[in-house]
Design a protein around this nucleic acid. Structure first.
Lengths: 206, 206
DNA sequence: GACTAGTTACACAGGTCTGTGTAATCAAAA
DNA sequence: TTTTGATTACACAGACCTGTGTAACTAGTC
């Protein structure tokens, strides 16, 4: 259990484990004892690095907040790649929705610190779309960016309950229509992937 | 505190209170003692009507599962009215996201009974859209219905963290584009409400 | 009045949780 | 070697949770 080459700082080891457990099982569902036990350290050590569970939660969310790295691919391609990436993540068994939305749903919008970072994350995603749309010369880049994040979050929420990667494909198709309507020329070199028409999975009968 | 005309059944009184508390503060955050205390009954009585908290949770979600009532308004109008209704609900301080998505996020997709009813709800909403689209003669009613529910759930998730009714307007505008692209004639009698172009609220600086 | 069904107050078992206090241990730096 | 800092084991306080057991009480109904 104890990883032989612990060449990370203790703080990072704690955060890494907390991340896995918080994300996969829920923040309220995981106690600090569980985290410490999983790493093989004492609870005292954990509390030496984080003054409280709340601080650990905040650090967990901050660590999840990574800016999308810049790319030299054409903007339209980057936008559509977002949905392909989503589809891949939906197919993974380790995907369990958006950690920020989940945290707000679990802890409540009254938790100011949690909500604040969730808002910052959502806004950064929207700004990323918006800047790409501006590059494409879209008139109402703000508005269209908002519509695109709706598709992203909508597919994530749907996948969380349905566990169906087709939600990402449906979002991608809708995005294409919205982009085209805004005058964006979807490069034909980006294959529209004539997959079978986004068949969605029927609810499990069992 | 004790409502003088308790002309509801005890079970309904319990469910009504549980609904308010579960929805507004979270299922895990509310204990059965809290619910009983709020009604002014003993915990024993509560357990006489529901064998366990899990049963109460299931009943809470089932009570939230109401089918959209049939309407004689034109289908396109009904579809767009969905987003207007969302906008109104977003503006209310009592709105706190989709109870089904929240429950799955809080309890985890591993909770089969919770997830099952959440799937049923989501699918019923999608089927409602789909049937209206069929009435409108839309070719790929299935696919478009899926895209519309993405917009609905996306705006709900975004509003949950941002608390911004503009998300519903953005979803509505996207829906109009998608419908038009599918050949649906948006009746001009449905005013497109030339409101100011869906300005979204900037993240709170405080 | 007598019977019945629902309800109440209240204690309690057994579990979980966050966070702290303490003294011993270990390892590396001085 | 001595000192210093991090870590450990472990107990514990105080709170909260779900669920049960029990005896008394209060309505209505027969």
């Amino acid at each position: 259990m104890a990883s032989p080459p612990p060449k990370q700082t203790m703080k990072e080891r704690i955060l890494e484990t907390a991340d896995k457990l918080f994300y996969m099982q829920g923040i309220r569902a995981i106690g600090v004892d569980t985290i410490a036990a999983k790493i093989g350290i004492s609870k005292r050590t954990l509390y030496n690095h984080f003054p409280s569970k709340d601080a650990l939660i905040a650090a967990y969310l901050e660590r999840r907040f990574v800016q999308p790295r810049a790319s030299d691919k054409p903007p339209a391609e980057q936008i559509l790649a977002t949905f392909d990436s989503l589809e891949r993540r939906f197919a993974s068994k380790d995907f369990r929705g958006c950690p920020f939305v989940n945290a707000v749903a679990e802890l409540g919008p009254e938790d100011r610190s949690v909500r604040k970072i969730a808002i910052a994350f959502k806004e950064s995603r929207r700004a990323w779309f918006r800047d790409l749309l501006r590059e494409l010369g879209v008139a109402d880049a703000e508005g269209l960016a908002t519509q695109l994040v709706l598709l992203v979050d909508g597919s994530i929420a749907q996948d969380l309950v349905r566990d169906d990667p087709a939600m990402a494909r449906a979002a991608r198709q809708a995005a294409i229509v919205l982009l085209a309507h805004a005058g964006v020329n979807i490069d034909k070199s980006i294959p529209d992937k004539p997959r079978e028409a986004a068949k969605i999975r029927q609810p499990d009968a069992s």
